[in-house]
């Protein structure tokens, strides 16, 4: 290969479009290429750079998603726990609250929630839920194990003013009782059978632990029937008008106020209005204020048109 020796001529040929003979010779040199691993590396880096923000966002989403999942799981666990507590209270509170000796257990007076008129300010349902989880079974135990008072079985429920809130077991029952009462609404307008007699002393014994909800539900149903039986059809309608929308109030009342003896209240309902009021005054004189208030409320619901004495009206306020 003969190559010209003139540097200026070489430069001109090098700067020409074809680059001259030296450029041609250079182009015949081995065409070294980058290895494939470099290709992969460079292209991968370029792809990561373009999508650089995506993994960051995905990491952020991953974190938020994990936190949301944890919160969701905690919420579900909390609800399940609440439900378990409620079920436990329904099915086991008599066991937890049952006295150690059966003899004392027989002195326990079952409490039957009543369908009463709604209190003027019904607490929100959420409060019910909170209360439902709150009842301390230990207090029930103490009450149940307390020595029986000298009064009769009806009076045994009287100091309920200072008693702890009723167990949660009694709470779902009113709902079912209300539903059942609604189902049996037409018969309420008809003359019904007389109120069932008060439960026998044997029936007043503490119910079997597993039968507590059913017992409460049954008692609730009986209470509704008895309540309807003691009044005329017109009064029943009037009472229904006040009682029916008071489902939550009744339920919350069963939670917030100690239950009174439905037996005694049923007896009160059979009294003449004036005698009933006199009985309420007697309760007040005996210091059984809570019992008197409950009886008075029931009186007002049963006899909405009957004027109340001023001192008793003040009791409702």
């Amino acid at each position: 290969m003969s190559l010209p020796r003139d540097p200026d001529h070489d430069l001109e040929r090098l700067l020409a479009d074809d680059g001259g003979d030296l450029a041609a010779l250079y182009r015949r040199l081995p065409k070294a290429e980058p290895p494939r691993r470099l290709d992969r590396s460079v292209l991968g880096e370029a792809a990561r750079a373009v999508r650089g923000h995506t993994p960051r966002r995905q990491r952020w989403l991953l974190g938020v998603g994990s936190a949301a999942g944890i919160v969701l799981a905690a919420g579900i666990a909390w609800h399940v726990g609440q439900d378990a507590l409620r079920r436990e209270a329904q099915g086991e509170w008599p066991v937890q609250g049952a006295p150690a000796t059966p003899s004392r257990n027989q002195n326990y007076v079952p409490v039957h929630p009543l369908d009463e008129p709604a209190p003027k300010r019904a607490p929100p349902p959420a409060q019910d839920t909170v209360d439902a989880a709150a009842p301390p079974p230990a207090q029930d135990t103490v009450d149940a194990a307390a020595p029986p008072p000298a009064q009769d079985t009806v009076d045994a429920a009287a100091p309920a003013a200072a008693a702890p809130p009723p167990p949660a077991a009694a709470r779902p029952a009113p709902r079912k009782a209300e539903a059942r009462a609604k189902e049996h609404a037409p018969p309420l307008a008809q003359p019904l059978a007389p109120a069932p007699p008060p439960p026998a002393p044997a029936a007043m014994a503490a119910p079997a632990p597993q039968a507590a909800p059913a017992e409460a539900e049954r008692a609730e149903g009986k209470s509704g029937e008895g309540f309807a039986a003691g009044i005329t059809a017109g009064a029943a309608d009037a009472t229904k008008a006040k009682v029916a929308p008071a489902g939550h109030g009744t339920r919350s009342r069963a939670v917030s106020a100690p239950p009174s003896s439905s037996v005694e209240l049923r007896r009160d309902m059979q009294l003449a209005p004036d005698d009933w009021l006199a009985h309420i005054r007697q309760l007040l004189h005996q210091g059984r204020r809570q019992q008197a208030i409950e009886s008075l409320r029931l009186f007002q619901a049963t006899h909405p048109d009957h004027p109340l004495p001023a001192e008793l009206r003040a009791l409702l306020d």
Binding site: K31, A32, E33, P34, D39, V42, L43, A46, A47, V50
Partner: peptide, 20 residues
Amino acid sequence: GGDLLAFETLYRRHRGTLYR
């Protein structure tokens, strides 16, 4: 602007020149 194919075209066009 985010077009990865454009980069691949550039890369394949210039990779040899740069490497040599």
